[in-house]
């Protein structure tokens, strides 16, 4: 999964803005929990352990 491959979402700007906006007014702990919930929901939506593990490794690589 390298950055330039493909853009799977038809409106990335809207998704990005919605992710940021979802955190509005939350303290640090709630914000963190929201992200964790999103990750778990999206991992379930992906539905493939290998792809989820690859995404974890990719994110960690770029930190």
């Amino acid at each position: 999964m390298s950055g330039a491959d493909r853009m799977g979402l038809d409106d990335p700007d809207a998704v990005f803005a919605a992710l940021v906006a979802a955190h509005a007014g939350l303290d640090e702990a709630s914000s963190r929990r929201l992200d964790a919930m999103l990750v778990l929901l999206l991992a379930h939506a992906v539905g493939d352990t290998g792809r989820v593990m690859a995404a974890i490794a990719e994110a960690r690589r770029l930190i």
Binding site: R33, L34, D35, A36, M37, L40, L41
Partner: peptide
């Protein structure tokens, strides 16, 4: 982070 994931799993 572990606490956030734990609480997220419980909340869901």
């Amino acid at each position: 982070a572990a606490r956030a994931y734990r609480d997220a799993a419980l909340a869901l």
